[in-house]
């Protein structure tokens, strides 16, 4: 595609800007056209749930593991769910091995908030014994190929992996010890949050930026949208400023696109049957 490196020149920026002014994109899409999304779930046998999501050429793999531990003291009857992301250097020549950086942490937090504030998980259901045992879910997102808009890719991967979870049921035996009762169950997920990211160059706003656009854009904004057509979390990236009108218009667009995408993906098909 377009030659992009860490050092971005005015050549790429001017070209992308010129096209956007005419309502065109370098990959031939319209301003509010999303790339093709494909989801594969349940491909890691040792994970409780897993999903492999492509948005265009961007790819994120997500796996869910669990642990049983003590709840937080302020929420003794609620389970815990944490999202982590790894920008593994496999994905891009720009990623380096080592501890997760700022971007990786921000991405994980944005995905986490999308899930948390949509109330899609029933945290009470994740409690085994109040104050003593709760399920702790670890959602680990691995960026496998970076072609832009990893936030949306990771958010879809995370929710698809959660829907795919088959969790062993715990019970407390007579001595108060924790035991497996021999069965599995899926999680009770009431909402499917979908994240939609918009980029902005000058005053042109467009959905689902690809890597070349991401390198030159002034700013971007990610919305998590739930099934009730509400925006449940927003994250603004980079230095561009947004007027209130722009934010409101973009939110409306996000709801529309998310709704369409949710219908198309039908993520609930990945839920395993309880047994």
């Amino acid at each position: 595609m377009i030659d992009i490196s860490k050092v971005v020149s005015s050549l790429e920026k001017n070209y992308i800007r010129k096209l956007l002014k005419q309502g065109k994109r370098i990959d031939g899409r319209g301003l509010f056209e999303y790339r093709e999304v494909t989801v594969t779930a349940g491909f890691v046998p040792k994970a409780e749930g897993s999903a492999d999501v492509h948005i265009g050429d961007s790819r994120v793999m997500c796996g869910v593991k669990y642990d049983i531990g003590r709840p937080y003291s302020d929420n003794p009857d609620k389970g815990v769910c944490t999202v982590m992301s790894e920008f593994v250097p496999i994905a891009s020549p720009m990623f380096e091995p080592g501890r997760p950086g700022e971007d990786a942490i921000q991405l994980a937090r944005v995905v986490d908030r999308g899930i948390r504030h949509t109330n899609c998980l029933d945290y009470n259901e994740l409690c085994v014994k109040v104050g003593e045992f709760v399920y702790i879910l670890f959602i680990d997102c691995y960026m496998m190929d970076h072609f832009g808009n990893l936030t949306d890719t990771a958010a879809i991967a995370a929710i698809a992996a959660l829907l795919n979870v088959n969790l062993p049921r715990a019970k407390i035996d007579a001595d108060g010890k924790l035991e497996w009762d021999g069965t599995y169950r899926p999680l009770n997920i009431s909402e499917i949050p979908i994240s939609i990211t918009f980029g902005k160059i000058d005053d042109v706003i467009f959905v689902d930026p690809i890597l070349a656009e991401e390198m030159v854009l002034d700013g971007s904004i990610a919305f998590a949208v739930d099934e009730k057509k509400q925006v449940t979390s927003i994250q603004k990236y980079k230095s561009a400023t947004w007027s209130v009108e722009e934010i409101m218009e973009t939110s409306a667009k996000a709801v529309e696109i998310a709704d369409e995408l949710r219908k198309k993906l039908n993520l609930r098909q990945y839920t395993p049957k309880a047994c």
């Binding site: 890691v44 040792k46 994970a47 409780e48 897993s50 793999m61 796996g63 869910v64 593991k65 669990y66 642990d67 982590m84 593994v88 670890f138 680990d140 691995y142």
Partner: peptide, 10 residues
């Protein structure tokens, strides 16, 4: 590197 979810115990 091994992914956190690649093995039985995270």
């Amino acid at each position: 590197r091994m992914a956190t979810f690649s093995v039985h115990e995270r």
